[in-house]
């Protein structure tokens, strides 16, 4: 309706300086978040804020190893975020499996399932390293290379194929239905 390209630098600046994090700690790296958010390292200086709801969040922190069970939640939560959205994988495990390189139940390459913009190596990365990663992400947002959300949209078939290979087709519905008998059982018990 209105041509907003003129204001694009302003928007990029706002996006860069106002990264809201999904407060959804998916692995052991979540323990690094408190020092990052509190007075020692204070991420709020950069306008970053933990945010419980994914609908208004921009940055998804994958903090540590990912199992198939958490990956399902990660994908669902990631898809709920509005574009543009960024993913920062945190630690070696999402990158290549890390110490779980031969585990039967850990995801070795997270970027086969959702696009990852920045990966921080280390087990665990120190808060300084995480801040470095965030700094890198900010630079990437500024020069337009943090385009994971674009890649996810363009190559959705590929990501979907990988997800379905791992979980089997129709996994969302299956996963949802899995808990219904349990819920029903619980209801009966309450009565």
């Amino acid at each position: 309706m209105v041509d907003w390209r003129l204001f694009e630098p302003l928007f990029e600046f706002a996006r860069k300086r106002s990264l809201w994090i999904v407060a959804f700690c998916t692995g052991c790296g979540g323990i690094e978040m408190p020092p990052l958010m509190t007075s020692r390292y204070d991420l709020e200086r950069f306008g970053m804020m933990p945010n419980p709801a994914p609908r208004m969040a921009d940055l998804f922190l994958i903090t540590g190893y990912v199992t198939p069970k958490t990956l399902k939640r990660i994908i669902i939560t990631y898809e709920m975020q509005p574009d543009p959205k960024y993913v920062l994988a945190h630690g070696s495990c999402p990158l290549n499996g890390g110490i779980y390189w031969d585990a039967y139940n850990a995801i070795k390459h997270l970027d086969r399932y959702i696009p990852v913009d920045v990966v921080i190596a280390g087990c665990m990365p120190r808060p300084e390293a995480v801040m470095d990663g965030i700094k890198k992400l900010m630079e990437m947002i500024e020069n337009g290379t943090a385009d994971g959300w674009k890649r996810y949209r363009e190559n959705y078939e590929w990501y979907k194929k990988n997800q379905d290979e791992l979980f089997g087709e129709g996994w969302r519905e299956r996963e949802a239905r899995r808990w219904i008998p349990w819920l029903m059982d619980k209801k009966k018990k309450e009565k």
């Binding site: 600046f13 706002a14 300086r17 106002s18 007075s39």
Partner: peptide, 16 residues
């Protein structure tokens, strides 16, 4: 005892 965001942070949030 933190530094905190700049004062115009909510405006940036809203623009974003």
């Amino acid at each position: 005892r933190r530094v905190g965001p700049p004062i115009y942070q909510p405006i940036l949030d809203t623009i974003k």
